[in-house]
Each structure stands twice: as C-alpha cells, then as structure tokens.
Amino acid sequence: MLIFSGNSEVLNPRGRVSRLDFFKNNMTIDEIIELNDFYNKHNLDILGDCIKRNPMTHPKWCEYEGDGPAIKVVLFGNSYTWNHHKMIIQECRHQVKNFTMDSEEGCEPLAATSLFPGCDKKLEDFSALLKAIRPHYAFILSRFYAVAEPFTNNVMDLENDRIFLQMRAQLRRFLPNIRQKLYILDTIPRVIGQNVQNIGRDLKKGVSPEEISKTLYTSDGYERGRLRHAALLKECFGKCEIIDYLPLLTRNFTVLPQFFDDSGISFFTSLGHLSAHGIELVRPIFRDICDKLQDR
C-alpha cells in the first residue's frame, strides 16, 4: 500500500525540485493501480494552487514570484494551464521575476468553442491580460476544442475557415504585447477517459499494451488543430514556437499514441488532463525552454 501526501514545493530553489508524481522504482502492479486511481481522484489538486496578489483589480488571475531579475511570464489557456503551471514555475523561476496565470475552463485563447458559454468574451479577456502584463514570454496551454473543429464546409481552405481566421485575428492582437516569444502547445489526441482506470487492471489480467492502447485512443480530429497551428506559425515572423508532446507519446511498443509508460502508469487522468506522471514526462521540454529565457 502506497501512502501519498501533498507536495507544496512550488517555489523551491532550482536543484531541489521534487517529482510531482510519487513515482518510485520497482513498483508492483497493485501499487501502479493504486497510483493511477490516486491521479484520477485528485486530478488537478496535487499540481498547485492559485496565489492572488491583486484580488480586487484582477480577481481571476493567479500570480507567483520567481527569483529572476526582470523577466515576466504569462501562462494562459484552459484547464491545461492549471494542469501545467506548478511544474513550469519550478523550472523557470530561476530566470523569471513574475508569473501571471489565467486558467479558464474550456476556453482557448486563439478561438472560441460553443461547448462552453462565454468563450467569445474570454478571447477579449486573454488579449487584455497580455496588454496589461506585457510579458517577455507567454505560454498558451490548452487542450483542444475550437482549434480542431471541422473546417468550414468540411474543406481545408484556411483563408475561408472561420476558426483559422479567428486564430489569426487573436494572434495579431497578442503579438504586439509579447516582448520575446509566444509558445503554443500543439494538439494531441484525447485519451478515452473512462478507460484510464483500467490500464493497470488490464495489464494485471495479461492484456497486451497494444490492446490497451486501442481502448484509449479515438480519432477525434486533433490533426486539424495541428494543421491550423502550423499555418499560424508562418504568420508569427519568428516570434512563436510550437510545443509538441506527440513524439513523447508515439514510441516503444505500439503505433498508436501511448498514454501510459511501460509499467502501466498513466500519463493522463480520467478527465483528460495530464497526470502528475504525464507532467514529469513533459518536464524536460520546459526545462530546456526555461534555461534559454533571456531579457533582451
């Protein structure tokens, strides 16, 4: 039986950052099942909290101090922003003076989905955030909804595609208020959430990793988001960079995205967020980015 306890090391100095995923070597399959269940139960609450320094003027923004001399960073998007922010603060705080976070349920900064009410208004709010902070660097951290919707008239004609034109308009509002670079998380397939709890249990029954992967994957149109992001990148004039998790998920023993590691620990929760183990999977990407941040 594993015993889990909270981790409050958001602002620990560089070099003393603990893993967030309670991983240990040589875990038994029963411990792996227990760990996956723990990720599903706690989902986001083990991955950080919100510090509100200006609750009267900006009641929805969370702000965090770093150890750096001048650099300001904005993290914004939907629940993936909350999902990622603790790890990014850990990795970047040696370079960054201030972090501001705006995590909006379901709403993406580049385009508005009709699945969540008010996302059209949130497009304006995201733009206002960048205008108010004028960060050196900004990170769009969103799982896809709008950016991967079907193309207008089901034809890939981006110059007449409603979503892409909205993305372009948002980009043009964002870039003048970002001093150095905008990082955009690319779309990846969504996991079938109700099957995440079965990963370890199926492995224990002898189900092959290939068969388990088939129960977790659906063709959900994420490729459309990648096509739109690639086209948008051409309009950034070197001021944008795509962050891509897909190479980390397409490896080892299956041609399908691998939503769990070789031992059966899930990279995702049943709600479709990255688990703490998934956050550790992508940590090296952000470590590399953070080490290169400059106040030019």
Results as ranks from 00 to 15, higher is better:
D37Q: 05
L115N: 14
R134I: 04
S275P: 05
R143P: 01
R19H: 10
L20K: 12
H58P: 00
R172N: 13
P69M: 13
A146M: 07
K86V: 01
D120I: 05
L47Y: 04
L2V: 09
Y64R: 01
I140E: 14
T152C: 10
N36E: 13
G238I: 01
P135C: 10
D161V: 00
T250G: 00
K86C: 05
R173P: 05
V282T: 09
K131Q: 15
L171H: 08
I184K: 00
P69R: 13
P209V: 11
K214S: 12
G6M: 13
L271E: 15
C107S: 12
I29S: 13
K121G: 04
Q180E: 15
G66L: 10
E280K: 08
T57V: 10
T100D: 11
F76S: 00
Q180C: 09
P247A: 09
L271V: 03
C92R: 02
A111H: 06
T254M: 06
E91R: 13
S142Y: 00
H85E: 13
T57Q: 13
L248C: 01
D295H: 15
Y217P: 06
P59M: 04
A148P: 02
L281D: 05
G200A: 03
S219P: 01
I188P: 00
G48C: 02
N83F: 07
H42L: 07
N54C: 06
